[in-house]
Amino acid sequence: MVSQALMLDAEEGELLKEPARIGKMGISEAKAFAALKSHSEAERRRRERINAHLATLRGLVPCTEKMDKATLLAAVISQVKELKKNALEACKDLLVPMDDDEVKVETYFDRTLHFKASICCDYRPELLSELQNAIDALPLKMVSTEISTLGSRLKNEFVLADRRNKNALDDAGAIQLLTNSIHQTLTSVLEKGSASPEYSPGTTLPNKRRRVTFFDSSSSSS
């Protein structure tokens, strides 16, 4: 009986015939043949998947029909970076909760001194009341507040104004002291939620994303 052994071409991933030889194929040879055949088919399917994905990428990125694989991947990376940059620019002025917990406070003048403060963290049922109590304890009036949620994440932004006249806080040291006080107040609310044993980060809001803005009626005066 004439039998032919097969060998695997490492570059092409295909089975090639070896010169014919006389003899009965033993059990070990049959197993080796089956393993080589299985490996060859797996390699063929893998190459087909890769080529299919590359074809998809060529359709998503312009002017890539004649690019080799390495150049195509470089073009895709560049395109993704550009899209990410554009997305960040588009969201720059939007109130969108991020993944990291944070507290920010900055100042600006609009006829009088204003503080723009924000807190971003996981939502919990008592969070809004805690924030309200914390803000009420400050020597400032709330001009507006804006809330945005995304999944279990919440971002609350406040605009606060000095209760006194526009010249009351001309001293840079006093402004910095009040800025630090706002930051510490919001940070304490943030840390309280992290330390709460009954708080579950999995708590989600009723809607995937909800955004609402409130304005204090006194903000339109003066």
Rank of each mutant, 00 (worst) to 15 (best):
A87C: 12
I50R: 15
K166L: 09
S218I: 00
V143M: 14
L72A: 00
N51M: 11
L178M: 13
V61H: 03
V189L: 00
Y199N: 10
K104D: 10
T185E: 06
V189I: 03
T185F: 05
K84G: 00
R49S: 15
S196E: 15
S188Y: 09
A195F: 09
L190D: 03
F109G: 06
R47T: 06
S28A: 15
I147C: 15
R49V: 15
A168N: 01
K116E: 05
H53L: 13
Q184H: 09
T64Y: 02
E146N: 10
G26P: 00
M98Q: 14
S3Y: 09
P62L: 04
T203A: 12
G193S: 04
D216E: 15
N180W: 10
R164L: 12
I147S: 14
H39W: 12
N51G: 14
P139S: 03
G151A: 04
H39N: 14
S218Q: 06
A172Y: 02
G26S: 04
T56R: 08
I77T: 12
M7W: 11
L128T: 04
D100E: 10
G23P: 05
D93P: 05
K84L: 04
P201Y: 05
L160C: 14
E18A: 14
A168M: 00
L57V: 02
L36A: 05
A35Q: 11
E146G: 06
R124C: 01
R49E: 15
K92D: 08
S220Q: 02
A87S: 15
L95N: 12
L83K: 03
F214C: 09
A34Y: 02
T56M: 11
E43G: 09
A20C: 10
S194D: 14
K66C: 07
L177R: 13
L128E: 02
D101V: 10
I119D: 04
K17P: 12
T112S: 14
P62H: 03
Y108E: 12
P201L: 07
Y123A: 07
Q79F: 04
K155Q: 05
F115D: 03
F109M: 14
